[in-house]
């Protein structure tokens, strides 16, 4: 039995699927975030020990790392759908890319914000031109650039293609962010971020951090699908199927 995946690639087919998935992703996101927060605040040590004796502010790890991961992951998704759209000229791919961008920009901002509030008490500064901080800031500009470029061009098809190109060109930033701290000798580089290795994070901290990551990942699905549905309706408003859907939809 083969499934015709292209059947789902049409906006009309995907609109109801996304609508059915949103409550699931929202529910899972809420549950995981609540578990992660409870675990992170009540079931872990208040302070760290050993060679990294951070105080209560280390708890920012539970939002900072998930936000930073999501910012990079969503950019990959944005660039991926942009590339698919450019190559196969599928409408839904461009809509998907456009729907991802604002959520990605929010997570990038949050990674910078929570990082600043973590850096101040631990490193001694809110901001530094550390390679990783700088490249994350660039990623934020790329998201903003994508959104601005898209909204500056009136013709939807042109806007899709121009913004998609920008997204693909900016893809070079993601490995830069990821590799920017892999400085083998801390004496030889100005980077404040250190090599991060999940193996050196104790399970009691790693598990709530990963739970929060999955929660925010699930949230991203829900938010992107919700935005996608609005984009589909706006762009397809001339089609007959929208008329039928609209008649049934409740405004709530």
């Amino acid at each position: 039995m083969t499934i015709n995946w292209f059947k789902f690639a049409s906006p009309a087919a995907f609109y109801p699927i996304a609508g059915r998935l949103i409550p699931w992703f929202s529910g899972i996101a809420l549950a995981l975030v609540l578990v992660g927060l409870f675990w992170g605040f009540f079931l872990t040590a208040d302070q760290l020990g050993g060679s990294n004796p951070q105080k209560e502010y280390y708890r920012i790890i539970y939002v900072h790392v998930p936000a930073a991961w999501m910012s990079m992951w969503l950019y990959l998704v944005l660039a991926g759908w942009s590339a698919i759209g450019l190559v196969f000229n599928t409408r839904l791919s461009f809509m998907m890319a456009k729907a991802v961008a604002p959520t990605g920009a929010i997570f990038t901002f949050l990674a910078l914000w929570t990082g600043a509030l973590w850096g101040r008490p631990s490193w001694g500064t809110y901001w530094d031109w550390d390679p990783r901080l700088t490249s994350e800031l660039l990623l934020f500009f790329l998201y903003i650039g994508y959104i601005a470029l898209h909204s500056a061009i009136d013709d939807t098809r042109r806007a899709d293609r121009a913004a998609a190109l920008l997204a693909i060109v900016g893809l070079v930033m993601v490995p830069v962010i990821f590799l920017s701290i892999n400085c083998p000798d801390p004496n030889q580089c100005a980077s404040l971020h250190q090599r991060s290795d999940p193996g050196s994070i104790h399970l009691s901290i790693l598990i709530p951090m990963l739970t929060m990551t999955l929660g925010l990942w699930s949230y991203s699905f829900a938010a992107v699908f919700a935005r996608l549905r609005t984009i589909i309706l706006t762009r397809e408003s001339d089609n007959a199927w929208v008329r039928d859907v609209i008649a049934q939809e409740t405004t709530a």
């Binding site: 302070q47 050993g50 060679s51 004796p53 951070q54 790890i61 090599r195 050196s200 104790h202 901290i205």
Partner: peptide, 11 residues
């Protein structure tokens, strides 16, 4: 500025 270590352990 202080650098942080990569190990995150309860005391």
């Amino acid at each position: 500025l202080a650098k942080h270590d990569e190990s995150y352990m309860p005391p």
